[in-house]
Amino acid sequence: MLVNYTDIWTAFLQTLTMVGLSLLFSTLIGLPLGILLVVTRKGALLEQVPFFNVLSSIVNIFRSVPFIILLVAIIPLTRLIVGSSIGTQAAIVPLVFYAAPYIARLIESSLLEVDTGVLEAAKAMGATPLQTIFRFLLPEALSSLVLNLTIATIGLIGASAMAGAIGGGGLGDLAITYGYQRFDTTVMLITVGILVILVQGLQTMGNLLARKIRRH
């Protein structure tokens, strides 16, 4: 059977688009949420326990919905935002809803790793809350943030494959439609191979970058 490389290339670009854009948007949402989860908890910089509890619950609710259900459940919202409920762009909306709370939790755990002594030093110096976040908390957590965002990116690649279910396209979709449904083993192997290389490459890059930040 002939392998259509144009299809594979198109699917590859669709995957990059979906993962890239949803990573961007979900980080833009997840980063502030993650910071809020850290600074509003009990005993923290801007302690607001009721706010923390509500925020934490909302994040948990979104995290507990399986992606495939989220994908379908928010179709009306997707249509409202991108004007359509199918296609690559439409897949980005549920991907963001899926990844943003996940990233918020990852960022939260990175920030919680920061030595409390450093934060005490910040307080002793008279740093404002914003200075504490941007000049102490985030720089100290940077290496761990990079590693956790790498995990999130790879998670998004997996989720984007499922987005094929609403016609999102991408490599995962290609592997399912050609390889699984049409028994085209070659295409399936090629797409899976590309996904393996992509994941390996991202993880290696993430590790290198994190080490570079840590070791300067």
Binding site: D115, G117, V118, A124, M125, G126, P139, E140
Partner: peptide
């Protein structure tokens, strides 16, 4: 006012509390 007053009070710590990410 307290933040300003703290600039008049230096502090050193048992475990130094330096930023590892900074020179």
């Amino acid at each position: 006012q307290l933040r300003e007053a703290k600039q008049q009070i230096g502090m050193i710590f048992q475990h130094f509390n330096l930023l590892d990410s900074n020179t």
